[in-house]
Amino acid sequence: MSHTAHIPSHRKPRQRASKSALRAGVAGGVLSTIAVAGAAGPAQAEPVTQTIEMPTITSGFSTAVAASAQATQQVALDLETQADEDAAAEKAAKTAKKAHAEAVRKAEAKKKAEAAAKAKAEAEAKERAERASRTSERTMLSASSGSSDSGSSASASAPSSSNVSGSAASIVAFAKAQVGDAYVPGGTGPNSWDCSGLVQAAYRTAGIDLPRVSQSQSTFGTQVSLDNLQPGDILYWGSAGSAYHVAIYVGGGEFVGAQNSNTGTVQRSLDYDRPTGAVRVL
């Protein structure tokens, strides 16, 4: 083989391939050239005069790569935008739901407050009407008591049976007029009472001054049987002289008393709370 033999070029038709494939082809051609030259011996080697044309990357490939990268970036941006929109929509839905629940709660609270205010106003109006009625009854009782006292002073000695009945009627009427008043420990009227305060005030309308406490009231007068009661008799619970509660017998098997803070002043049957004994003052 001639030392100047032509080394065929390994150039191939241009194809779209990666940079690594092109460089591999170039490297192979160079190695082949070196191998042939080496086989001829180092003494007789001559410079290689064949020029090997290096493949170049076309501008079309670069454009395609750039377009692909741009498309990928656009897809990423679109996904990020969609995620932001979904998050914003979810947040808006939660906010709207919370606002609706708060509006419903406020509406219910307002409705309850209005109902409570209406009920309170009605109760206050009813209480004012009841107080006005009791005040009117008390005024009439006071006038009746004054007339009874005048008649009594005109009589000679002990009061007649008619005067006693009149006093009992005054006591009973006063006691009934206080039904609905509050019970307050130590209360002596005019709109709140304890048990002995009510009894004392009722007897005062008949011109009789009773002791203040129930223990003393339970012995102020003549002890009578519960089977022989008359309107105006004082009922007591507990032992005579150590009674813990008193009330007024109003006839018909019923009594009026300032019971406790839960019931206030009530009119009840003797069977509701059977008394221990009774005393007659009139």
Rank of each mutant, 00 (worst) to 15 (best):
P159S: 05
A158Y: 01
A37E: 12
V250H: 02
V65E: 12
A17E: 14
S152L: 13
V48K: 09
A129I: 00
S239V: 01
Q50V: 11
Q267C: 10
E108N: 07
G232I: 02
E108V: 12
S157W: 07
K94E: 11
V256D: 00
S62T: 14
T205S: 07
G238F: 04
Q44A: 15
S147I: 03
T58G: 15
G252E: 05
M54P: 11
G253Y: 04
Y249D: 01
S161C: 03
S155L: 13
A17G: 09
H3C: 10
L235C: 02
A76H: 02
S32P: 08
H6F: 10
R212L: 05
A116P: 06
P231T: 02
R134E: 02
A99M: 03
T4E: 12
P8R: 14
Q178I: 03
V279S: 02
I7R: 08
V256R: 05
A116N: 12
E90I: 06
T276R: 03
S218A: 01
D149R: 15
Q178W: 00
D86H: 06
S155C: 10
N262S: 15
L77W: 00
Y249R: 07
Q44H: 09
M1G: 09
R105T: 14
H245S: 08
A64N: 10
S170E: 06
S192L: 01
Q73E: 14
A27D: 14
E90W: 11
S261D: 11
Q259H: 12
M1K: 07
A67L: 04
R16T: 15
G166A: 09
I57V: 13
K176V: 03
S155W: 02
A103P: 10
K112Q: 15
K98Q: 12
A117I: 04
A119C: 00
G264S: 00
S160Y: 00
P42D: 11
N260C: 04
V48C: 05
H245Y: 00
A240Q: 08
R105W: 05
A35R: 11
S269E: 09
Q200K: 11
V256G: 00
E102S: 07
I234R: 01
F255S: 06
I34G: 07
E254C: 14
G38H: 07
A99T: 02
V104D: 10
A69H: 12
T81I: 06
W237N: 01
L270I: 02
T188S: 06
V179I: 10
Q82D: 12
